[in-house]
Structure formats: C-alpha cells, structure tokens
Amino acid sequence: MASALDRIADIIAETSDVPREKITPDSHVINDLGIDSLDFLDIVFAIDKAFGIKVPVEAWTQEVNAGTAPAEQYFVMKNLATRIEELVAAKVPGPSGGA
C-alpha cells in the first residue's frame, strides 16, 4: 500500500489544481502549495474518508493561532503524513473489535 505521504499527496493533487510532482515531503501545504482554507476543507474531507479518521483540523488551527504549536507541525507534508499515521494508529481497534 502507498505511504500516507503519497496518498495525501495524491488527494491534494486530485482535489486542487496543484500538480502532483510539485508536492514534496517538505512542501508547506498553505505557503508552498497555495492551498487556501476552503480547498483545505475539501482535502481534509477526502483524508477523513480515505483513512477513516476525523482530522482535528479545528484544534490544530487553534493551536497554531494561539502560538502553542508551529504551523509546520501540521501543515508541512511529511509532518502532516505523520499526524495522519498517528490518528490512524490511534483508531485501530483491539483484537476484540474495539469500541
């Protein structure tokens, strides 16, 4: 299966006008790729569906705006992919099927 980074890059390329080859691990989604907040909502919706998670983008934005987290932590591609992997890992149910 493709890495989270590749899957997210594919989603961004499909959802926005950004060419796939322009998206690198060090790309900042907003500053480098020019994704605005509305396009980012579409991307988050596609990520939510593709990974079966609920990306806490509202909490991330609040942290960045409050200065308690750097924007790079969430919005640089390689870090975004890590955050998504963490969310996927957190939702994996136990052997009994989980809640």
């Binding site: 988050v44 919706f45 939510d48 509202e58």
Partner: peptide, 9 residues
Amino acid sequence: EHDGSGYAV
C-alpha cells in the same frame, strides 16, 4: 455525509 472537525457535509 460526514461530520468533520469544524465542518460537515
């Protein structure tokens, strides 16, 4: 369709 973080579809 979907109830996301700060958005819904």
